[in-house]
Nucleic acid binder design. Structure first.
Lengths: 193, 193
DNA sequence: TATTATCTACTGGTCTGACCACTCTAAAAA
DNA sequence: TTTTTAGAGTGGTCAGACCAGTAGATAATA
């Protein structure tokens, strides 16, 4: 268990909260303009430098965009950008490296189950259309993407991509799952022709 | 002395690069101390405020930790906590929300299944020990953490934390899953006493 | 001597006010 | 009308200041 010590909030963290308020109260949408730094400073009774410290933080996360001489704008986010960032930290932790393999398998189990439920027929036709050898040649990733395409959950897809890519980067093994079994589970013939 | 080295890159971004150098050249490890803000400012020929803008950015990312009167330190790794703050900025479109919701449920299904397999007895005793009301009071997160603790897959745990934190930040509902059902699935009595 | 209290130098946290570079817009000039 | 220009506003950066907290050296104490 981690011990998270102090909890004295710093002034710039209020900036983050305040900006959330701006977004909510003013119903700001991506691309919209935020109040100027000087305005925020006055309204929050903070110095402009403190305001800026808060802005820089969320700018690095890709949530806002600053244009000199123009203003600060909400960005059309890419929420996955943040997920990628977090993934960076997750993978940075060496302890979790060992878990990548396990977790990848788990995630794939989920994906395969969903594939059966939501688009078994489509997957079957797609795979059968080209034949087993075709997908065998195109590789594990392409094959799996067929399932992912019918599930239509971009977040789950992103998680799988991250895990899979990371797995490949730290392991020698090419396939963690028998593609043949995968095909057969969807009722696709795998006999070579 | 004018600065602003022509290109579009902002000065504070150099701070990030420089800190990477510090880490690499000085072979800094988690917990180690970085040069003081004033030192960095002098060495990079930047003002202290600019240095601080860079520091705040990577602080929010959880890379560093600042202690007033002491210094700035490299951090082991980041928890989901700070990022959950930002989740409020990220999710606005319905589609993304649905993705988070769906994915969270999926991940939890996996976790619950694994809980049954790897530590059903432990979970049961843990929950029974304090009684249903205790966990009901402590909340969904604490209850779920019992399952996570026996699974012992930190990556899966972190993914769940991330999704759960995101979920809370975008929804009002406290419980997405009937805790009562969860208890009963592990054979724990839920009758009030 | 061993302990405690105090001082001091240094650190991050914040503020003020300034100047620059840039972008927009509206008034002035063509 | 179109073009030019001047100004106001914005972010980018800076220097210097003061506060608040920490750690280590020093002095005072038991």
């Amino acid at each position: 268990m981690l011990t998270r010590s102090n909890s004295n909030t710093k002034a710039y963290q209020n900036v983050l909260e305040k900006i959330k308020d701006y977004i909510q109260i003013d119903q700001l949408k991506p691309g919209d303009k935020l109040p100027s730094e000087r305005e925020m400073a006055e309204e929050l009774h903070l110095s402009r430098s403190t305001i800026r410290e808060g802005l820089r933080a969320i700018e690095l996360l890709g949530l806002i965009e600053t244009r000199q001489g123009d203003g600060t704008f909400l960005r059309p986010y890419q929420s996955y950008q943040t997920l990628s960032l977090l993934a960076g930290f997750i993978f940075q932790d060496r302890e979790t490296k060992d878990n990548v393999d396990d977790t990848l398998v788990m995630i794939e189990d989920v994906i395969i189950d969903l594939g059966h439920i939501r688009g078994s027929a489509y997957i079957q036709s797609k795979w059968s259309g080209h034949g087993y050898d075709y997908w065998k040649k195109r590789g594990y990733k392409a094959t799996f993407e067929v399932i992912l395409s019918v599930i239509d959950n971009q977040l789950l897809e992103k998680i799988w991509y991250l895990l899979y890519a990371f797995y490949l980067s730290i392991e020698d093994k090419q396939h963690i799952r028998k593609v043949k079994d995968l095909f057969q589970s969807f009722g696709v013939q795998t006999t070579e022709e």
